[in-house]
């Protein structure tokens, strides 16, 4: 039997890195009350298009801010994406904006996309990790 190292194969990349966590994340809106609470609840109903997990548990939502514009109540949702080249970008932003706008007491909603802090697997909430495990992902 040969003890030589196997020659490189066509598929050499198998490493999967989970990345570092961030102290204040994931944001799940757990302390939110009133209108802000209802926006978080509405966002929790939006699922990732590829996996059965809510965008809140996936850790995509970085914040919800309620303000007033011309006497109307406006929600600004700050969010990120798992990947810069995410093909579902428009769809997710649209779904999240619409969900926020349907929360009771909200007249209009906007979405602001940010890239910092970087999303990593550590941004997934404990409940989200359970959902992903049930779906068959090793996390």
């Amino acid at each position: 039997m040969s003890s030589e190292r196997p020659s490189p194969t066509a598929c050499a990349y198998t490493d999967y890195v989970s990345g570092e966590g961030h102290e204040e994340f994931p944001k799940t809106g757990e302390d939110a009350t009133g209108i802000e609470r209802r926006v978080w609840d509405a966002l929790s109903a939006v699922e990732d298009p590829e996996m059965p997990i809510s965008v809140v548990d996936l850790g995509l939502i970085y914040g919800v801010r309620i303000g007033e514009i011309d006497g109307k109540t406006n929600a600004v949702v700050t969010m990120t994406l798992t990947y810069t080249g995410c093909p579902a970008r428009s769809m997710l932003k649209g779904d999240i904006r619409e969900a926020a706008a349907t929360a009771e007491g909200i007249d209009s909603a906007e979405v602001s996309l940010v890239w910092s802090p970087e999303w990593t697997l550590e941004m997934v909430s404990e409940a989200g990790k359970e959902d992903l495990r049930e779906f068959g992902l090793s996390i």
Partner: peptide
Amino acid sequence: SRVGKVLSEEGY
């Protein structure tokens, strides 16, 4: 604020 995410996707 955008560079970190881009860098993390470049190594591979």
